[in-house]
Simulated scan of single mutants.
Amino acid sequence: MSDSNGHYVVVLAGGISHERDVSLRSGRRVADALTAAGHRVVLRDPDAGLLPFLAKERPDVVFPALHGSSGEDGSLLDLLQALGVPTVGSTGASARRAWSKPVASSLIADIGLAVPESIVLSHEAFRELGAASVLQVVHSALEGDLVVKPASGGSAQGVSIVVDSNDLPRAMVEAFTYADVAVVERRVVGTEIAVAVVDTGDGPRALTPVEIEPTDGVYSFQARYNAGETTFYAPSRRGEDVIESVKDAAVLAHRTLGLRDLSRVDFIVDDDGTPWFLEANVIPGLTETSLVPLAIEASGTDAPTIYGGLVSAAAARASIRTP
């Protein structure tokens, strides 16, 4: 239970997804920040002993830093809710909406934000209908360069940019390695901008948008987590009008998907200044090279303040539910 030094917080990190190593790095950073903020913190892997541990320990708050399916597909979040443990972040239901890129894109398109034209293909349909026939239809429907990505997942794993049509079959195989459903979308050329949205109890607000400029032109897994492979600009160099537009779009996407506490919404801003929605992340990377910590710093605050505020908000929700 909480004491005079703050709340008792269990930070979840690791898991068995493709993003385990990134999650461990995020978890350590969150644990350090919360410790600096005066909380008592235990770092815990989501293994078979987790649920009995939480049932016995009854921490004040759980802070998931689990990337990939371990934390973002909604399963664990549902179990934490069923266990009655106050949790930082989105509910299981809203996490599922964001976890599925096709579902999230459809919901965002319905409210009028720009979303790249796409075709969603299950691995089963790809096999049954014949790869050659399917790709011929894709080519005719989506002209120009393409982006192929798994329908779920993060850290750009399984994502390919296809300039030469001969590379499309290989890109499909790469995407299907990470998910049973792949998204093929028309590539929007422009500036990649990520916006962290936080809500520590006063409503969601966008932090300073971070502009991403990879050294080799592609924000790949390596470019995300290896220092020196990407240059970041916070705020973006695109100008105040574009910055405000992308911040408004991020908060609108966060609200539309029903997200809570913390998210990161990714856009491509084209030459006309239009933000094109790419995806929303309910448990974004929080490592030393991740975008959310950069946005926090650029916004004139720090990680202990933001993460501590999220913990306090989660604890406050629990006190409201429990008379």
Rank of each mutant, 00 (worst) to 15 (best):
R187E: 08
L146E: 01
G300D: 04
V42P: 00
V282P: 05
V103P: 01
L77Q: 15
A132L: 12
A315E: 08
N5W: 11
A31M: 07
A194D: 13
L135N: 03
S69C: 03
G74F: 00
A223Y: 09
V85I: 15
A109I: 06
V159W: 09
R96H: 04
G144T: 12
A318S: 09
L294T: 11
P102R: 07
R187C: 11
V148T: 14
T322F: 07
R97M: 11
S69T: 14
I193Y: 07
L83T: 00
S299I: 10
I268F: 01
G258R: 07
E213L: 15
R170N: 08
A280E: 11
V115E: 06
V184D: 02
P214H: 01
S118K: 15
V10L: 03
S105H: 13
G300N: 04
T322K: 14
A171L: 04
L129V: 09
E240C: 06
V242H: 02
V62F: 01
S100F: 01
D110E: 14
R321T: 14
V265S: 12
V197R: 03
L278Y: 13
D145L: 02
T177M: 10
P116C: 12
D272N: 07
G38D: 08
V9S: 06
V134N: 02
R317K: 09
L34I: 05
K149Y: 12
F277T: 12
V30K: 01
V269F: 12
G68K: 06
A223N: 11
P52R: 08
F277I: 04
E288H: 14
V30H: 06
I119E: 09
A182F: 08
E117P: 02
G300W: 02
E244D: 14
F232S: 02
G285P: 01
V148D: 09
H139C: 11
D180S: 15
L129K: 15
F53V: 03
A318W: 00
G84P: 07
V189F: 05
V42Y: 10
L12K: 10
G112V: 02
D47W: 10
P204V: 15
H67W: 07
A318D: 03
Y233S: 14
V11I: 00
P293I: 07
E19T: 10
G309R: 13
S133W: 03
E185K: 08
V10C: 03
L310A: 06
D45I: 11
L121N: 04
V189Y: 05
F126Y: 15
R28H: 09
V41S: 06
G308W: 11
T87K: 00
A13P: 00
A104C: 04
L129F: 14
L135H: 01
I268K: 00
S118R: 15
D145S: 14
A318H: 07
S94C: 04
V137M: 11
L146K: 05
A93N: 10
V184L: 05
